[in-house]
Design a protein around this nucleic acid. Sequence first.
DNA 1: AAGAGGCCCTGATAGC
DNA 2: TGCTATCAGGGCCTCT
Length: 287
Amino acid sequence: MPELPEVEIVRQSLNQKIKQKSIKKVIIRNRNLRFKITEKFENYLTSKKIIKVDRFSKYLIIHFENGFICIIHLGMSGTIHILDQNNPVNFTNTSFYNSPSLPKKHNHVEFIFDTFKLIYNDPRRFGFFEIMKNESELKKRFKNLGPEPFNKRFNLNYVINYFKHKNKDIKSFLIDQKFVSGIGNIYASEILFAGKINPFKKARLLNLRECKQIITNSKKILQRAIIKGGSSIRDFKDVLGTQGNYQKEFKVYRQDGKRCKRSKCTGFIKKKIASNRSTFFCIICQK
DNA sequence: AAGAGGCCCTGATAGC
DNA sequence: TGCTATCAGGGCCTCT
C-alpha cells in the first residue's frame, strides 16, 4: 500500500519526532506479522537511543546508538501513530495520515518514549519489523532489491539491458522490486500513462523513447508525490491529521470509465488485470 | 533464468 | 437485513 512517497512522508514526520530519543519500553501485542518478531526484539531495543530514521525503497530504517538497526515495512495496511501526552498527533493511518484517532484493533507494536509513544497498527499483518545488528547485515538484507528511481544506477543502460530478453509486460517490471525499488501499483500506472506506454507491452519490445520515458517519469512522479505529501486514498469523515494530496492528481489510477485527461485525447480509462494487480490506462494514447 | 500462480491476512464494498 | 464474493497501496515462495 504505502509506496516510496508515502513511506518517505512517514519517515520525515517520524524522524522529527523520535530522533535522539531513547526507547523506554517495547510492547509487542502480536508477534505474528509477515515475519514473526523474535523473542529478543524487546531486549535489543529497550533503553536504546535512536540516531535517526532513514528509508530505502519502502522500508523505514531506524538507526540506534549501539549500531543496531530496526527495519520496518508497512506491507499493505501498516500505519504508524504517535500518541503524545500533551499533543496527540497521528503520523499515518489507514488512509495514510489523517486519522483523527488511533484505531482500536490491530495495534501490534508499541515503542514507549518519555512523553509519547509510537504505535504500529496493521490489520492485514503483511508488514514486519526486523533487527539488523550492523550495516553489513542491512546491506545483505537489501541485496536483492534494485536501485531506487532516483539512483544513478537506474539509467538507460541499465533499463535497456535489463529488458533485453524479458518477455513479461512492462507493468509487472515497474512493480518488481528487483528491477526498480519503491514503485507500487498506484505509481506504476501513473508512470506508464505519463510515458504513453501500454502496460501490457512486453518489456523487450520497448523502444528507446519508452525506456527514457520510464526513467524520467519514475523520478518525476515519485518526487511530485513526495512534495504533495503522498497519496491518501480513502475519504474519512473527520480529518484532523495531515493528509496527502497526490491522489487529486491521479490521471489513471482508479479513474476507470472516465475520459482521458490528456487535452487532445478522445480515449477513456480502462481497468485490466496485469500479473494479478489492477492496472489503469488510456485505451487511445497508451496503445 | 524467467515466468506463472498461489499464499499470507482483515476489512470495505458490491451484488444478490 | 444479511449473506457471499471480490478486491485492496506488498512481497515471498514454489513449481514449471
